[in-house]
Design a protein around this nucleic acid. Structure first.
Lengths: 253, 253
DNA sequence: CACGTTCCGTTACGAATTGTCACGCATTGC
DNA sequence: GCAATGCGTGACAATTCGTAACGGAACGTG
């Protein structure tokens, strides 16, 4: 890791990423008696294709989840922050590789036990379905980003998303840490490290952010950043929605 | 629609796309007594943000599912073929808009009933979780495609995926229909219509495919197409997997 | 039935964003 | 100290985009 920053990141998480839970949850309670395990930066929690024998909760640190093409091209499908749940695959094999970005503390729970718990805790199933749905929603956001946003928009979107994720309350954080490298960010956003670097520089020159260090970002003009991200302002969302003018066949019968 | 092609597409589906089921399923049985409804091409089944009151099964035809950015940029998150299930959102609102590409026949089932059925049919929950997982897997494939594949690779991947989807048995179809327009394909693959067109032409010139009509594709060299897609040959998959050489911390304890 | 219109797909060509390659610098760890 | 790693920047190349024009097929209208 390049510069110095505190690896510990506060517990939180009101947004999805790859099978992760938020706030109070029956899921969390499963881990209560589990020992805390530690893994070093860049070590893997599991590999894509491994038998999915455990689910994990991230206690501290950040994970990256990724898939590879045969020739080595990589896409990071998500980052996992403290308080989030990992590995609730409903398949018998993990869909992606999970690696530590920072030193990570986590707890694990055997999937076999999990399915037993499903019977005991009726709300757990719904919670798992809700988590899967959040995942799917996040995945679709990401598809839209990858398919249609410019480099600048992707970086802005990323910063805003992290700011929302990191902050325990509703208010997005004004200053955020990015423990992952530029390469991680590039592979998450479908760019190269050079383009990521240039986009950061451009946002800095425009005064929207400042970069005390490469891994620390201050959001100086969050609203402007939001505008650059290509998404609606949170405010104008309720009224706007200029429903497409065309055919509206939404159920005559 | 431009050229003539049979709108009806055979029932099938061994692959995921946006909450869809395959083969025999308890889910399917729910729809048994439901009337068949018809919608016209380009009409919407529902809009993103609508209350998610129903789940649907596609009987005939093809749907497109998409999300929009405020300025109108679109990404199609998936196409839905006959036999597939739609709308098993675990949220109270739909995450995306669903529109008919062709004339579509479908059945619907109230979500309220669905949750009642969950209690009666214990396997249904697992089925829903499995569907969500398939969705997630497909979404991640798509992220990898959008983030890291070239235009040529995207088109090749798309053709192969459709060939697999359409064919009822394991053998991918050699000749496929693409009822959607070039714009739909472009918005699905994160390209422009011109680039899609150019990629088709290039594959044609290289002899990998032929195009009897814009909506009909013959896969002349499926293996070569597979190679162009950037994915591994299905054969070499089992042996290969040259596990990354580096850190292997997969659980000392 | 003929005509015009519209939509869609293809191709061409110039433009732009992003990628590639190269280098310098700072920090870290041995 | 010194090598290794990560970040930033510049020059240049390449893929993809954007604009435009054209042709064919389907559709509507007279």
């Amino acid at each position: 890791m390049a510069t110095t920053f505190p690896y510990a990141i506060a517990r939180s998480a009101p947004v999805p990423i790859l099978v992760r839970a938020a706030g109070e949850s029956q899921f969390r309670s499963l881990f209560a008696t589990r020992p805390i395990e530690r893994i070093e930066p860049n070590a893997a929690v599991f590999w894509e294709g491994d038998p999915a024998n455990h689910v994990f909760e991230v206690i501290e640190g950040v994970l990256r989840l990724y898939r590879l093409l045969p020739d080595g091209r990589r896409t990071i499908t998500g980052f996992l922050f403290p308080g989030e749940i990992l590995g609730v695959a409903f398949k018998d094999r993990y869909l992606f590789t999970a690696e530590a970005v920072t030193p990570v503390k986590l707890q694990r729970y055997p999937r076999a036990h999990l399915y037993a718990s499903l019977a005991r805790m009726p709300g757990l199933t719904r919670e798992m379905l809700a988590m899967a749905c959040d995942e799917l929603s996040a995945a679709q956001d990401q598809m839209l980003l990858l398919a249609r946003k410019t480099a600048q928009e992707r970086i802005a979107s990323f910063l805003i998303a992290v700011a929302r994720r990191i902050s325990p309350d509703a208010t997005p954080a004004r200053e955020i840490e990015l423990p992952m490298t530029r390469l991680d960010i590039a592979d998450y956003l479908g760019l190269t490290i050079e383009t990521v670097s240039r986009a950061f520089t451009k946002l800095k020159l425009e005064g929207l952010i400042s970069l005390p260090s490469p891994h620390r970002v201050m959001l100086r003009k969050p609203d402007a950043l939001q505008a650059v991200s290509g998404e609606d302002e949170p405010d104008e969302a309720p009224m706007a929605a200029p429903r497409r003018t065309v055919r509206s066949a939404v159920w005559p019968s």
